[in-house]
């Protein structure tokens, strides 16, 4: 049982916290006194309205989805039309890791800032087409590490659990006596210890 990761925006989810830490461009539409230090470009103690800054998503979500929004969010460039066109053309050829480690998670937050539902549609389209590729990858026991590097965090975890299930199926099909094994944490702990001993 490794540490479970959740893709549902659960309050304690490490992945969700990391995804909402990504910076997105936004524009301040109210004067914010005393918080000039958020803008490294000026020495002004106040933040003037009209300033364009890159802010982490958690702050933008809090400050833009209220009755009198303080900021308006802009889309990061990978969710703009030009990049969406690339994804529509052939999602499988894209290095999604370079688009963003939490591409889908961030995208599902971004869809509420887009003008139409283009982002949501493209995300779904991308995922459906790339999912087949991930299934293929996890079915092949020996797979090309370069392809795996092109997956984003969600896809990578899907690939890993798929691969794991495949290995379990293999050992079940063999039906030979299943050897008892040390727990995974114990083995990892031993390996780590060995590395530590080598260092000193």
């Amino acid at each position: 049982m490794p540490l479970q990761t959740s893709y549902f925006p659960d309050y304690f989810s490490v992945d969700d916290i990391l995804a909402t830490q990504e910076k997105i461009p936004c524009k301040f539409i109210q004067n914010v006194p005393k918080l000039g230090k958020l803008n490294p470009a000026t020495e002004d103690p106040d933040l003037q309205s009209g300033t364009v800054l890159e802010m982490p998503l958690w702050l933008v979500l809090e400050a833009s989805l209220m009755r009198q929004p303080i900021v308006t969010a802009d889309l990061p460039k990978v969710y703009k039309d030009a990049y969406l066109e690339i994804l529509k053309a052939d999602p499988c050829a894209v290095d999604l890791h370079k688009f963003g480690v939490y591409f889908y998670e961030l995208g599902s937050y971004m869809k509420q800032f887009g003008q139409n539902d283009d982002i949501a549609k493209t995300l779904l389209h991308t995922f459906t087409l790339r999912f087949r590729q991930i299934m293929d990858l996890s079915d092949n026991v020996i797979s090309d590490p370069n392809v795996i590097q092109k997956l984003d965090a969600l896809e990578k975890s899907l690939y890993e659990s798929g691969h794991d299930a495949k290995m379990k199926l293999f050992s079940w099909l063999k039906m030979s006596e299943i050897p008892l094994e040390a727990a995974t944490m114990v083995t990892n702990h031993k390996k780590r210890k060995r590395v530590d001993e080598d260092l000193f």
Partner: peptide, 26 residues
């Protein structure tokens, strides 16, 4: 009005608390 300032600081407080709780929980 200091209202926007207070709101942004409050968001930061909530975020800090979330991170601390998530750290302990995980």
């Amino acid at each position: 009005s200091y209202l926007p300032t207070v709101k942004i600081r409050h968001a930061a407080i909530k975020r800090n608390i979330r991170c601390i709780l998530a750290y302990h929980y995980n």
